[in-house]
């Protein structure tokens, strides 16, 4: 259950859902520190392509990641709906840039399914599971995976293949 723990209840997960392209994704709310509008950032040279730069979050320097690029989805210009989800994973703080944030949802853990093949345009590696709410399909992202660095560069190539 990497990236997901829920101390409040055994059955109910609280998620933050957001959009990237045509798909709706979600991450565990416990890992989310805050959600902010896109703000001025500073470019960091010589690092991963998907690192958009760093921002000053009340005196802390926090890297922001273009999540589209990180997951291998075609990028687009930031607009007024663009948000940064500041999340904590393995004691690292990272801001993920998403198209827009939708809502906070509650979902019964038992309804989360293992990833079926070809459900999404992104690599299964980053998918923790699939949640269904009414007739909506929600892709639960494995936060630990997307915020670990593709540390090994071999891993890096994988999403761009």
């Amino acid at each position: 259950m990497q990236g997901f723990d829920n101390s409040l209840s055994e059955e109910i997960l609280q998620l933050v859902s957001f959009n990237l392209g045509d798909e709706e994704f979600a991450i565990d709310i416990i890992k989310v520190q805050e959600i902010i509008k896109m703000i001025e950032h500073t470019y960091v040279p010589n690092t991963y392509d998907y690192v958009e730069g760093v921002i000053n979050l009340r005196g802390k320097v926090i890297p922001i990641v273009n999540l589209r690029m990180r997951l291998g989805i075609e990028t687009k210009e930031f607009d007024k709906n663009t948000r940064i989800i500041v999340a904590q994973s393995n004691s690292k703080t990272v801001g993920f840039i998403v198209d827009s944030v939708n809502e906070v949802l509650r979902i019964d853990k038992s309804t989360i399914e293992q990833t079926p093949q070809l459900v999404s345009s992104i690599d299964d590696e980053y998918i923790f599971g699939i949640g269904k709410i009414n007739d909506k399909i929600l892709i639960l992202l494995d936060l630990a995976k997307i915020s670990s660095h593709l540390n090994s560069k071999e891993n890096d190539t994988k999403i761009y293949e």
Partner: peptide, 27 residues
């Protein structure tokens, strides 16, 4: 000097970053 954080680790050519009086981050 502020480190660029665990996520970025050490970046070639950069010693870190700092925050200026106007709140801007510079390398």
């Amino acid at each position: 000097i502020k480190s660029l954080g665990d996520y970025l680790g050490t970046v070639k050519g950069l010693a870190g970053s700092t925050i200026l009086g106007d709140g801007k981050v510079v390398m």
